[in-house]
Design a binder for these strands. Structure first.
Length: 475
DNA sequence: GACTAGTTTTT
DNA sequence: AAAACTAGT
């Protein structure tokens, strides 16, 4: 009897550096891939339409590249994570699968789903093999001297480097199977009710496109990354986050290719490359936070005291914010970039999040949700980590009194207003002198709204709200 | 318990 | 130049 394997694909939609795929090919004579989709679950997690559209395109490409290895890709629909383990088990039993392989996901619902799936499959005498492809170190493994999980990036990174070994980055190529598997089930088309067209030029699908983008960035931009990453108009970032979010590209591959260009150094050599690798480690850091502190997945802040902050709630302000009409050009340009590209430059994510949580004093969870619903690179742990950092409710929190000034940020990082003009056409004729604060320009277009708030008083209001919550918690 | 150092800064 | 903060050693 041939050994039949099933690879359950989730956020690892690639052949390159895919440990579950490699092991399935090693151990089995015949292998199928499966992707199980749930529209309900997708919506429950606030995943965006633009990301869904990107997902579907990537699955089509994955299906083609898997077929070169003699591995068919089946897609199934399920109701939710709850119904999924049963459906996966039924499929496996019906098709006489002996072993199921997957790469772990660390979200709280995802872990539960995976544990339950493994249990049900084991009960059917199907062996389960689980791997890690999202991180260099299994979450929770790196610990402080006191044996606690890290909650500050720098010491985490220090330990990460201390324990690092080049062997971690050994990447094998998968080989093709001799024979294709025969299945009793047909694939079903992924069911969804709404879809958003992805700009194919901005986000070409597939791992070849991802690899090309990575090498293009590393060759042309990585050395200047230390400086140019802060300028939204220079576009000095790699823009690989959508590929990382769905696993079209692996973080290990990113680190390896970066290190190759830097004489295999992590801390010395080119500052830009080191900084960029840092960002991959940040991603791993926030995955560790999600793993070690389940509360952040349960709508709770990392800093407990911030739960008693009295957030404001104003529907008009929220509406203006969601549409990119706050009257602060750099904030609005960032929001409008996200609404048109499905992606926002990281400097602007911070500016926008800080403005929302501090100046507007609105609950960071609303902003977190707004981003997830509109980003092509939506990733729970990175998005949650970033929002909580900005809101000073999270790990490594910026002291609550350190509040970005959107005008200063605009002057520093979009000095000529080029980025503002690109995304806010109403302001295209505003003079350089007034572009960061257009309402002071007599000739500015009346289409653009007046500032929704006063920066100085709203800043003090936020500091006061944090102070009150802190004192309330100490008493 | 003292000391160090901190992604992304402000007035 | 200073600060209303604090994890990790």
């Amino acid at each position: 009897m041939p050994m039949k394997g099933l690879i359950w694909f989730r956020t690892d939609l690639r052949l390159d550096d895919n440990p579950a795929l490699l092991d399935a090919i090693d151990k089995c004579d015949e292998v199928a891939g499966i992707y199980i989709f749930s529209e309900n679950q997708w919506n429950d997690h606030n995943e965006s339409n633009v990301k869904l559209s990107f997902l579907i395109k990537n699955l089509e490409i994955l299906e083609k590249s898997l077929s070169n290895l003699n591995i068919p890709l089946i897609t199934l629909n399920t109701n939710s994570f709850k119904s999924l383990p049963k459906d996966l088990n039924n499929f496996s039993v019906t098709n006489n699968i002996n072993q199921v392989f997957w790469n772990n996901e660390f979200g709280i619902n995802e872990s539960k789903r995976d544990d339950l799936s493994a249990q049900i499959l084991n009960n059917s005498n199907i062996h389960v093999s689980r791997f890690d492809d999202q991180v260099i170190y299994e979450p929770g493994i790196l610990r402080t001297g006191q044996g606690k999980p890290f909650s500050v990036f720098t010491p985490f990174k220090r330990r990460w480097i201390e324990n690092f070994d080049m062997n971690f980055l050994e990447i094998r190529k998968p080989s093709a199977l001799k024979k294709s598997i025969s299945l009793n089930n047909e694939s079903s088309k992924i069911q969804y009710s709404k879809i958003h067209k992805v700009d194919i030029d901005l986000w070409p699908a597939g791992e070849d496109a991802a690899a090309a983008r990575l090498s293009n960035f590393l060759e042309l931009k990585s050395r200047d990354y230390n400086q140019s990453r802060n300028s939204p108009i220079l576009d000095g970032t790699s823009r690989i986050s959508p590929y990382l979010a769905l696993g079209i590209l692996s973080p290990r591959r990113c680190i390896l290719e970066g290190m190759k260009l830097n004489n295999f150094e992590l801390t010395s050599g080119n500052k830009g490359i080191c900084k960029w690798i840092d960002e991959i480690v940040w991603r791993e850091f926030y995955r560790n936070i999600m793993h070690s502190f389940p509360k952040v997945s349960l709508n709770k802040p990392f800093q407990d005291y911030t739960d008693s902050i009295k957030w404001r709630h104003c529907d008009n302000e929220l509406k203006a914010f969601y549409e990119g009409r706050t009257g602060f050009p750099i904030v609005d340009a960032g929001i409008r970039q996200m609404l048109t590209e499905g992606w926002m430059h990281n400097r602007l994510r911070m500016v926008v999040a800080m403005f929302f949580t501090k100046n507007m004093l609105h609950d960071w969870r609303l902003g977190e949700e707004f981003f997830m619903k509109n980003l092509i690179d939506g990733d729970f742990s990175s998005n949650n980590g970033g929002w909580q950092w900005s809101a000073s409710t999270g790990t490594d929190a910026a002291p609550y009194f350190r509040i970005f000034n959107p005008i200063t940020q605009s002057q520093n990082f979009d000095p000529n207003g080029d980025f503002i003009k690109k995304f806010i056409p109403e302001l295209k004729d505003v003079s350089l002198k007034n572009i960061h604060q257009p309402k002071q320009d007599l000739f500015s277009s009346s289409d653009y709204p007046a500032p929704m708030l006063d920066l100085k008083t709203s800043r003090l209001r936020a500091i006061e709200a944090f102070k009150t919550a802190r004192e309330f918690n100490n008493s």
